[in-house]
């Protein structure tokens, strides 16, 4: 770890001021479970860190609203995952949190930090000697001709095929979440789907926040599809692992048992939170059957671009979406 300046702030205004003063290389610190980790690996070497974990305006969350659910960026994963209303009315959101990381990490980690967690690509985290455009722009991408079992089928580029690993954002993108941010230029909102960038030629740039901007909260429009939702996560072991493939599905059924509202996103397979409208379209208007669920899964992966070791995720992902559709469907009926 390199030495760095550390500032602890109590208010949002102080946070913005401190960030601006510290310059564009400075980092916000929330739970530290991503940032400190990367600093220890010397993959991130910020000269200054602004600790916002005590900022009261970021804390808390409210799942009782009729119009929207509000999640403060400083709310802890564990607290939100355990919220009774969320578990009942939006099981996919709760599941995406409690199936992530470990209890100890969820006790520390915040929802805002979670959104901006970075890829687990081993060549990125491994440091020298691996070529990595994200870590060292222009050095190449070791994964492209290497061990790419954990790499993306969607949204990759010549320069980078690293998976965005977060479960929470994968679920959120299915729910059309909005993000409120505050920066030196004031406050603004953006759809969550626009928060993360695809790697393109500049994989080192992962999100669209301006220097000095802070995520304040995430807002999720209330929807009856929340009840009929599921987040299914397939891992290399039963707990405490990132997704090999995951699927977030939320739906409602009409009076005839046909899918009405339908939202589907996939995780572990894309360079950013990945909504799959083609799968939604395939399912909408149909009853949930083995065949229609499978068809939704196939539609979700129709455009997949596999590498050397990850082609199996097309079939696995197809089945995962199909299972999640059936699970969501059973919850929508119940």
């Amino acid at each position: 770890m390199r030495p760095f300046a550390y500032t602890k702030v109590e208010t949002l205004a102080e946070a913005v001021d401190a960030l601006v003063a510290a310059g564009p290389q400075a980092r916000l610190l929330a739970g530290g479970t991503t940032l400190y980790d990367l600093m220890k690996l010397e993959i991130e070497t910020p000269p200054a860190v602004v600790d916002v974990h005590r900022v009261a305006d970021l804390a808390g969350f409210d799942t009782s609203g009729d119009r929207e659910l509000v999640f403060g960026a400083g709310a802890r994963m564990a607290d939100v995952a355990e919220d009774g209303r969320l578990r009942r009315d939006y099981p996919a959101l709760s599941e995406s949190l409690w199936r992530a990381a470990s209890q100890q990490l969820r006790n520390m980690a915040t929802l805002g930090g979670n959104l901006l967690q970075r890829t687990r690509c081993p060549y990125f985290r491994g440091g020298e000697p691996f070529a990595c455009n994200k870590r060292r722009p222009g050095s190449g991408c070791a994964a492209r001709e290497g061990l790419d079992r954990s790499h993306a089928l969607f949204g990759g580029s010549e320069a980078c095929i690293a998976v965005y690993p977060g479960d929470w954002a994968t679920a959120l993108v299915a729910f059309d979440a909005e993000v409120d941010v505050l920066g030196p230029g004031g406050a603004r909102s953006l759809p969550l789907v626009r928060l993360h960038r695809e790697p393109g030629d500049t994989p080192q740039h992962e999100h669209t926040l301006e220097p000095g901007e802070i995520i304040l909260r995430v807002r999720v429009p209330a929807t009856p599809a929340g009840r009929g939702s599921a987040y299914l996560k397939i891992r290399d072991r039963e707990s405490y692992a990132f997704a090999v493939v995951s699927a977030a599905v939320a739906l409602t059924l009409d009076g005839d048992g046909r899918v009405d509202e339908c939202r589907i996103a996939v995780g572990g397979v894309a360079t950013r939170p990945w909504r799959v409208p083609a799968a939604e379209q395939a399912l909408r208007g149909n009853e949930i059957t083995e065949a229609s669920a499978r068809a939704a899964g196939e539609a979700a992966f129709a455009d997949a671009r596999p590498g050397r070791d990850n082609a199996f995720k097309i079939e696995l992902g197809t089945r995962t979406v199909a299972d999640a559709v059936r699970l969501a469907g059973s919850r929508a009926v119940a």
Binding site: P122, Y123, G126, F130, E145, R237, E238, S239, Y240
Partner: peptide, 23 residues
């Protein structure tokens, strides 16, 4: 093993999965 680099690639307990209690 990535034969281009030598050594082991998944040199951490995150990437070298040992069973957890749930397994």
């Amino acid at each position: 093993v990535d034969p281009r680099y030598g050594g082991f690639l998944n040199a951490s307990l995150e990437e070298y999965p040992v069973p957890v209690n749930a397994d």
